[in-house]
Each structure stands twice: as structure tokens, then as C-alpha cells.
């Protein structure tokens, strides 16, 4: 129950952070942490709720956040073959991957939806995502309560 409360507070804090830094996903580092903690049930619910939040906020047809969050899972799976996926280095690589992916994904989805877009803004947001992702992940890992790591582990 405490775990649900913690993630709810994190979600609200993430939404507020997104309000001040447009175009950056502040919830994504939480998802990586959740995968690293191997909390499958929690991951599933967070994925659904956060996808709905990001899709509700976004201006593209439904689908961006599915690919966006799936890419974190894919990066984790691929990264597990070569790196220590619990390390800060992997979080930096994951941030870089998402930073590159952001303008590409927006561009692809905008083309599919027959919308006009300018790349400059999204490249800048990609850079911000790359910078913010590992820092936020490290902060989350630091503040995540030890006792919650063992609460209803799935």
C-alpha cells in the first residue's frame, strides 16, 4: 500500500515537473527503476496509467507512449546482455537512447498523422531528456525506500 502511495506521489511530482519543462518525460526514469526492481505487476499498472497520461497530454494519435515506454524495456533487455543494467552508466546510455529516440519518434508519428512538425524543438528536448534522465534516475534510486523494495514483489 505504501508502494502505491509512493508511486502516486511520484506521478504527481512528475506531472508538475513536466508542466515546467515541456517535452521532457519525467516519469520515464521511474519506469526504468521499476524494471530494475523487477516489480512486474507494478510495472504493468504504471505503464498503463503513464501511457494514458502522456497520450492525454500529447497532440498525436494514440501510440507514441507505447513505443516510447516499450523502448525503455527494449533498451533494458538489450543492455542486460552487455552492461550492468543497475549502474549509472546504463542510465546515462538509456537517457541518450531516449534523447535520440524522441525527435525520431515524434517525426515518425507526425508523418503518420499527416501533421507538420519542426525538428529543432524536439532535438533540444531530446538533449534535455538525455541530461535529466540519469540525474532523476540516480535521485530516485537514492530516495526509494529500502522497505518498499520487498513489498508485494511479483
Amino acid at each position: 500500500m505504501l508502494s502505491v502511495a509512493w508511486w502516486t506521489v511520484f506521478t504527481i511530482a512528475g506531472i508538475w515537473a513536466q508542466r515546467f519543462v515541456p517535452g521532457v518525460d519525467f516519469l520515464a526514469p521511474g519506469l526504468l527503476l521499476c524494471i530494475q526492481l523487477e516489480r512486474k505487476t507494478l510495472f504493468f499498472w504504471l505503464l498503463i496509467v503513464w501511457s494514458l497520461i502522456q497520450e492525454g497530454l500529447g497532440g498525436l494519435p494514440f501510440g507514441y507512449s507505447i513505443l516510447w515506454y516499450s523502448s525503455i524495456v527494449a533498451l533494458y533487455r538489450c543492455g542486460a546482455m552487455f552492461f550492468d543494467v543497475q549502474s549509472l552508466m546504463f542510465a546515462i546510455l538509456c537517457g541518450a537512447g531516449l534523447g535520440i529516440l524522441h525527435p525520431l519518434l515524434i517525426g515518425m508519428m507526425a508523418v503518420l498523422a499527416d501533421m507538420q512538425w519542426t525538428a529543432d524543438r524536439y532535438f533540444l528536448e531530446g538533449v534535455l531528456q538525455f541530461l535529466i534522465f540519469p540525474l532523476e534516475w540516480a535521485f530516485l534510486k537514492y530516495i526509494y525506500p529500502e522497505r518498499l523494495k520487498h513489498e508485494f514483489s511479483a
Partner: peptide, 15 residues
Amino acid sequence: IAHRMGPSAALDSII
């Protein structure tokens, strides 16, 4: 309530 926010916000928008 808010201006453009979130990674998939492709439009200049307000909420």
C-alpha cells in the same frame, strides 16, 4: 491549467 507538456506534445497547445 497548463501549456504544452509531456514528450508526445506535438502541438503548441494549452490545457
